[in-house]
Write a protein that binds this DNA or RNA. Structure first.
Length: 348
DNA sequence: AATGTGAGCAACCGCGTCCCG
DNA sequence: GCGGGACGCGGTTGCTCACAT
């Protein structure tokens, strides 16, 4: 038996929305809100549309403060950075770009941005091929997407250079646009970032020992992260060892702005078996594939004698790793939980 | 001027997740 | 704990328009 249809397909209109339909939907939602039930909404308004269609129309087109088209270079930059980091989680990416919808970004990526990147890669390959042809030796390519090197988007009449180091790094509040790219190269920035990501520090003056490590991290983009979640009461995770008592740690529900995405535990990433669809952009990962260690799980410690071992996972992005919410704890314990320590030991 | 082709984008579809009874 | 309904997301489709032939 199949899933019940969300609406009576025979009696709903499909295809492009008319201005009248738009007006009806917009005015109703502005006056009454959605009522928390999209399915019932079209009937209330007198629209012969599926509730899902109404929702989509509102979110992607009628909602106030939406921007359409005209993506800036900075937005390109952010989209690329996030796509490379987290893949096609368009809703998460959209949350970082005020006024943009996931659909918009998805379309923009699929129709334009990806081609720019692929065009660049293909150009590089041609260049490498001709270098090989010239003297039999492959010259080092200068602008791989790695480390402090840059890559560029080729547009009709110009080439935009992007510096990989300066790619913005996924803050979970809308980015405030400045002339300078966000740069997380100091302890304060990192701390602020992690706070945005849902962690907090037990001691507001506590700064983890990152000197040196950070320099390395941001100079070559290759790093490993360990996120240690501890309760300030009795439970303690220290390196890979955990006090089993009462921590039911971390995981699930990446807390984006109204968005959630599946836990990294459910989408294991390893350097040998990377599950994301890369749409021909695998070259981005060739040298930049990174191991990150996560310590955290939805399981209680008491359920596993070797909790730390079984819950040390390899993921590929430090900011995903950082986005661990301490969950499944009583509110009281939850409040005691802090993101105490993180580090970026380099793995090679 | 007519036709073909491809890009861009709005909308649809199906599935996984969440929530509530 | 389970099941059903609603929501939200990402992939895909199909329409429109601009440009090339």
């Amino acid at each position: 038996m199949g899933r019940a249809p969300c609406c009576d397909k025979a009696n709903v209109k499909k295809g492009p929305w008319s201005p009248e339909e738009d007006a009806k939907l917009k005015s109703y939602i502005q006056k009454h809100g959605t009522g928390g039930n999209w399915i019932a909404l079209p009937q209330k308004i007198g629209l012969k549309r599926c509730g899902k269609s109404c929702r989509l129309r509102w979110l992607n087109y009628l909602r106030p403060n939406l921007k359409h088209g005209g993506f800036s270079e900075e937005e390109d930059n952010i989209i690329c950075s996030l796509y490379i980091s987290i893949g096609s989680r368009w809703s998460v990416i959209a949350a970082q770009l005020p006024g943009r919808t996931d659909n918009d970004i998805k379309n923009y990526w699929n129709t334009r941005l990806k081609k720019k990147l692929l065009g660049k890669h293909s150009k590089e390959q041609q260049q490498a091929h001709s270098n090989r042809g010239n003297n039999g030796v492959v010259k080092q390519e200068s602008n791989r997407v790695s480390g402090s090197e840059s890559f560029s988007f080729v547009q009709e009449n110009s080439t935009h250079e992007y510096n990989w180091q300066q790619m913005p790094m996924l803050p979970l509040q809308p980015l405030t646009y400045t002339n300078q790219s966000p740069c997380f190269n100091d302890q304060h920035s990192i701390k602020k970032l992690l706070i945005n990501l849902g962690g907090r520090f037990s001691d507001d003056n506590y700064y983890p020992p990152l000197d040196g490590l950070l320099n390395h991290q941001f100079s070559n983009g290759i790093y490993q992260e360990q996120v240690h979640v501890v309760s300030s009461s009795s439970a303690c995770i220290s390196n890979n060892n955990i006090n089993k008592s009462e921590v039911q740690c971390a995981h699930n529900n990446y807390q984006g702005r109204g968005s959630t995405f599946t836990s990294p535990n459910e989408e294991m990433v390893s350097t040998t078996n990377y599950p994301q669809r890369l749409d021909g952009l695998e070259f981005f990962y060739e040298e930049d594939m990174v191991n990150y260690k996560i310590i955290g799980s939805s399981r209680t410690c008491s359920q596993s004698s070797n909790w730390a071992e079984t819950n040390t996972r390899i993921y590929h992005h430090p900011l995903i790793a950082s986005n661990y919410q301490i969950q499944g704890l009583s509110q009281e314990t939850q409040q005691e939980c802090v993101l105490q320590e993180f580090s970026y030991p380099v793995v090679q």
